[in-house]
């Protein structure tokens, strides 16, 4: 079964960067949706992460600037130390409010905000991590009709985050990194 969406939102913490670096080179260069990536990382205001991803994919990669419009075919990265929210007019807002789950950016914040705007046009994917973040976001996304995916904890460097998400939510698919590639390449096909 193939899925369709306008947004694929991906959240990850410890151990997720390796997964993304493995997955990105195998993705089709032209995608008809946008990918939004929220990773927990050390506070640093440089754009090292988007530069790193750019070396692994031909899909254009942007570190989000405030009020930037979301255009299909791109990868958007949440900047360090800001929450990333989505507006009804399909643009980003940044937010420097309190940390959520000890995290800023928080995966919950972005998943919940994306769910509110995109409803059934959203697919959320939660990767490896040693934190509780993302679980509640997946719940809200599911309630709003989104498709929910979690990395198979057995393949994750840190199993805690995917395991909690699976325990607390009804997840549509639990995927290994190879299956993640296949899944993403079949979106909107």
């Amino acid at each position: 079964m193939n899925y369709s969406c306008k947004i694929l939102a991906i959240g990850g913490s410890a151990g997720s960067l390796e997964v993304l670096l493995k997955v990105l080179p195998h993705l089709k260069e032209e995608i008809s949706f946008s990918i939004i990536i929220v990773l927990h990382r050390k506070n640093s205001s440089d754009s090292a992460l988007s530069d790193l991803f750019s070396t692994r994919t031909k899909i254009p990669v942007y570190e989000v600037e405030d009020k930037q419009s979301i255009v299909p075919g791109n990868i958007y990265i949440a900047p360090a130390d800001y929450h990333l929210l989505i507006e009804k007019n399909i643009s980003f807002s940044l937010d420097f409010s309190e940390k959520v789950n000890y995290s800023r950016p928080s995966i919950d914040v972005t998943f919940e905000s994306a769910a509110d705007v995109f409803n059934t046009d959203l697919i959320c994917l939660l990767l490896s991590g040693a934190n509780m973040d993302g679980s509640n976001g997946l719940k809200v996304a599911k309630e709003n009709g989104a498709v929910t995916l979690v990395q198979d904890p057995e393949t994750a460097d840190s199993k805690i985050m995917p395991s909690i998400a699976i325990k607390n939510n009804e997840i549509d698919h639990i995927l290994t990194p190879d299956q993640i590639v296949t899944f993403i390449n079949s979106i909107n096909v």
Binding site: K67, L85, I86, E87, K88, S93, D95, S97, V109, E112, S113, D116, V117
Partner: peptide, 9 residues
Amino acid sequence: YSRASLKRR
């Protein structure tokens, strides 16, 4: 105010 953030607050 940007609505997504305000709504969340």
